[in-house]
């Protein structure tokens, strides 16, 4: 145990190593560790933000679904109303069409009837004339009879 110059040489070595560590080792590592800590903190913050965003999105989605349901309900109700309306309108139109057709048919029938009556009248008149001709073959005042017959015809 003898103190000698070794002490100072060793202290100098120590000083060099301290200087080296403080100058070259520590700053590198401290920087890397700090950067990583910052990185991790940012990542955590981002995750937190993402979580919040997700929650908000869920709330918004639920809202939207609710609204969509409501709209669908409204549209359904409108459609039902419209359908009823269309059916009613169709009913009315069908009724109108029916009565129109009926009226047309009636008019046609009337026409037919009057035409038939006309024909019948003419035929009856002709028949009467033919009969009269047969009966009154010999001497008949054609003209006076024609007048007579016309008068009868018009009375029919």
């Amino acid at each position: 145990m003898n103190i000698n110059l070794t002490l100072f040489a060793q202290a100098a070595t120590f000083a060099i190593f301290i200087w080296f560590t403080a100058k070259f080792v520590w700053p590198h590592l401290a920087r890397a560790i700090e950067a990583r800590q910052k990185h991790i903190a940012e990542g955590l913050a981002a995750a937190e933000r993402g979580k919040q965003d997700l929650e908000q999105a869920a709330v918004r989605t639920a809202d939207m679904v609710q609204k969509a349901k409501q709209q669908a309900q409204e549209i359904l109700a409108q459609a039902e109303g419209r359908a009823t309306q269309i059916i009613e309108e169709a009913k009315v139109a069908a009724g109108e069409e029916g009565s129109r057709l009926l009226a047309g048919a009636k008019a046609e029938i009337d026409q037919e009837v009057s035409r038939a009556r006309e024909t019948l009248r003419t035929q009856v008149a002709e028949l009467a004339v033919a009969g009269a001709e047969q009966i009154l073959r010999r001497e008949v005042d054609q003209k006076a009879h024609a007048d007579l017959l016309a008068g009868v015809q018009s009375q029919l």
Partner: peptide, 12 residues
């Protein structure tokens, strides 16, 4: 185990 070394560190 050399007292010079430990004294060097301690005195620094």
């Amino acid at each position: 185990a050399d007292v010079n070394a430990t004294f060097a560190l301690a005195l620094s």
